[in-house]
Write a protein that binds this DNA or RNA. Structure first.
Lengths: 240, 240
DNA sequence: TAGATTGTTAATCGATTAACAATC
DNA sequence: TAGATTGTTAATCGATTAACAATC
């Protein structure tokens, strides 16, 4: 039973769908579509209309019976929910290939995420600029973050340097870490949120699914062998 | 009721945990640990021991009562399940910042993923090499993929070029697309698996969670206003 | 043998889908 | 008003956790 004042935690499944709503409503806006029903959203997004209404009702009552949702109003509400009505300042830690690629990417600023500094330990890189963003010595990281109210640290350092950088970040006013390192980051009970990208996991998942049909053939054969006709607790017609 | 010969579909939740098992078992191997129980795995991985046993039993019976799991044997089994006992050939499509960063990354080949070619439409890039991998004209893409038995296409082209490239890929023998573009790829009933990275979604999710405590304050106030003392169907003690 | 730990069934929990009264 | 569509409760489905017999 929920207590007065207690807040229903929004599930990660819902949170992960929010960017999809946001993205598609943005498209509708650009097409000057004024209103949309959960039914219509359902067709494009592939979620059920019921789920869409449930999802949105976690955050408020944005629709109107018999009408549906006003596109631009809903778009704005979801932007608020995602926290992107104000700009976010980011720094990239690690000016390697990936760090440079992210610094060069222009797609973040459209949504109000501005990279204002890059940090690296390599003195040959310090002083240079990537996409007009200066590279600073990593020693200055904490000072820079606190002074400039940086919200998000984009972590693209090598595996071995991750732990020490994360420890240093916990002593700053940073709010979130966008982690591109393969390291599992654990920050105990502090106000810093970590979002892992884990590219290798993503690639392995792809590999699994490419491999899946072959795998299931193999599993099937194995089980047939384990539980042949009439033996075992399952009958022939129950090969699981 | 399952039919004979029918295969239980492994849920995405399980699949997404497989790389974690694989990664941690690799660590244990390097530490020369010989055996491990689901209990011990549970402590490190943060999944319950019960869940770990359930997950593994989707694919076979790899443990032994009273003993646990043999680390290197389980590692090998999971490698088989993930389909990484044989090498995978990859091509990068789009030699922009991200494409170049991925081509330069050395972490993929450790797991048997080899990038053997890069494709771009820019004639100034064609003929150059990134990390010893040649850049070819994108016209040659289909021929190259089929001739060299390429398994995976890493897609890092601009948004507008995605659709046409994907259409062309469906006419090749490619098995999987690792999609770094912001476009939602839909390939109807063909043998090609798509794994989306969608960095913007990941960043927006981070933003949501940074914003969450503020958001919940706001939601709470709103609900208090909507359903004041003694009014509405909920009592004061039922503020949801 | 006794202790440990699996594989697996059953119970629980949470998320999705269905249904429908409320109402624009 | 009649038709449409929401917000929300109830039903269903699926995933996680608990429990325990089997057995190393």
């Amino acid at each position: 039973m929920e207590q007065p004042g207690e807040i229903k935690k929004v599930s990660m499944a819902v949170i992960k769908r929010l960017p999809k709503y946001y993205k598609y409503l943005g498209e509708l806006m650009r097409k000057n579509v004024e209103r949309v029903s959960s039914q219509e959203l359902s067709k494009i997004l592939g979620f059920t209309a019921s789920q869409i209404r449930q999802d949105l009702n976690n955050f408020g009552e944005f629709g109107q019976q018999g009408y549906g949702y006003n596109v631009s109003q809903l778009y704005t509400e979801i932007a608020k929910i995602l926290g992107i009505t104000t700009n976010h300042k980011m720094v990239v830690i690690g000016a390697g290939n990936l760090g440079q690629a992210l610094a060069n990417y222009t797609g973040f600023s459209i949504h109000g995420f501005d990279i204002i500094g890059i940090f690296d330990k390599n003195p040959n890189l310090v002083g240079r600029k990537i996409n007009d963003i200066p590279i600073y010595p990593v020693e200055d990281m904490e000072y820079f973050i606190n002074k400039n109210n940086v919200d998000i640290a984009v972590l693209t350092v090598p595996r071995d340097e991750t732990e020490s950088i994360v420890n240093r970040l916990t002593n700053t006013a940073i709010r979130g870490i966008w982690n591109f390192t393969p390291v599992e980051i654990n920050i105990e009970d502090r106000d810093i949120v970590v979002e892992n990208v884990h590219l290798i996991d993503s690639l392995l998942t792809l590999s699994y699914r490419i491999n899946e049909s072959w795998l299931q053939e193999r599993l099937l054969k194995q089980k047939r062998k384990d539980k042949p006709f009439g033996h075992g607790k399952n009958t022939t017609y129950m090969v699981k």
